[in-house]
Structures are given as structure tokens and as C-alpha cells.
């Protein structure tokens, strides 16, 4: 049960629509309605954590208590191209094929 001190967060259908767009998910009207309710419940459940006083707690960057894991800059074998492409839905023996990508990459 949510702690009484934290107000019930509620997501709007617009919030869910935006998240769906970012996740490239097409939702029907019914799905949007159901997901808005379900995601609101999940967020509400997690927001119980807001009741805990964390002022004196360091932010956790990683759950493992390990640091400085490196590998040396030494080449290892790559996959044969045929293997690399094997699980692609479509490929031409050299490259992965995807629906036309025009314009600027969103990369880096």
C-alpha cells in the first residue's frame, strides 16, 4: 500500500502517449486507457520510496561494489559476416536491410 505521506501519482493518457512514441509503440485507444491505469499503479507502488529520508544517503551509481574493470586494447576475433547477419529479418549478405532511412542520423 502506498504510504499515506506520498500523494497518489497519476499519469495522464498524454504522458503514456509520449512514452509510447519514444518506445516506438503504436497503441490503440483501449490499450492507451488500460496502460494509463496500469502504469499509474506501478508508478504509485514505486513512489512509496519517496517516503524514505535519503538526505544522508549517497546516490548509488551501481549495485555492485566493484570499480575499475578494464580490458586491455587487444584484438579478438570478430564474427564471420554470415554469422553476424544470420538472425537479421532481412539482409543482403553484406549488410542488414531496414526500411529506408532518410535524413540525418540521430546518433552520437
Amino acid at each position: 500500500m502506498p504510504a499515506e505521506s506520498s500523494p497518489e501519482p497519476s499519469l495522464t493518457p498524454a504522458d503514456v502517449k509520449k512514452v509510447a512514441l519514444l518506445g516506438r509503440l503504436a497503441l490503440s485507444g483501449a490499450e492507451l486507457k488500460n496502460l494509463t491505469a496500469e502504469l499509474s499503479q506501478i508508478v504509485g507502488f514505486v513512489s512509496q520510496l519517496a517516503a524514505v529520508d535519503t538526505d544522508a544517503v549517497e546516490p548509488l551509481a551501481h549495485p555492485l561494489d566493484a570499480q575499475n574493470v578494464f580490458r586491455e586494447d587487444e584484438p579478438a576475433a570478430s564474427l564471420p559476416t554470415s554469422e553476424a547477419l544470420r538472425s537479421a529479418p532481412r539482409q543482403d549478405g553484406e549488410c542488414f536491410l531496414v526500411p529506408a532511412v532518410l535524413g540525418d542520423s540521430g546518433s552520437a
Partner: peptide, 24 residues
């Protein structure tokens, strides 16, 4: 040639894990 320098890690295949290059 295309896709000759790829492995499960840089292809993002399930179960692969990245390890940081010290030189980089």
C-alpha cells in the same frame, strides 16, 4: 568490408556484456 568487424557485444546481442578498453 561491411559487417566484418562485429561481435555479439557491439551487435547488442542478448547476453553479451561490455568491458571498458583501458587504452581508450
Amino acid at each position: 568490408p561491411p559487417n566484418t568487424q562485429v561481435c555479439p557485444t557491439c551487435l547488442g546481442l542478448p547476453g553479451s556484456l561490455p568491458v571498458m578498453n583501458r587504452c581508450a
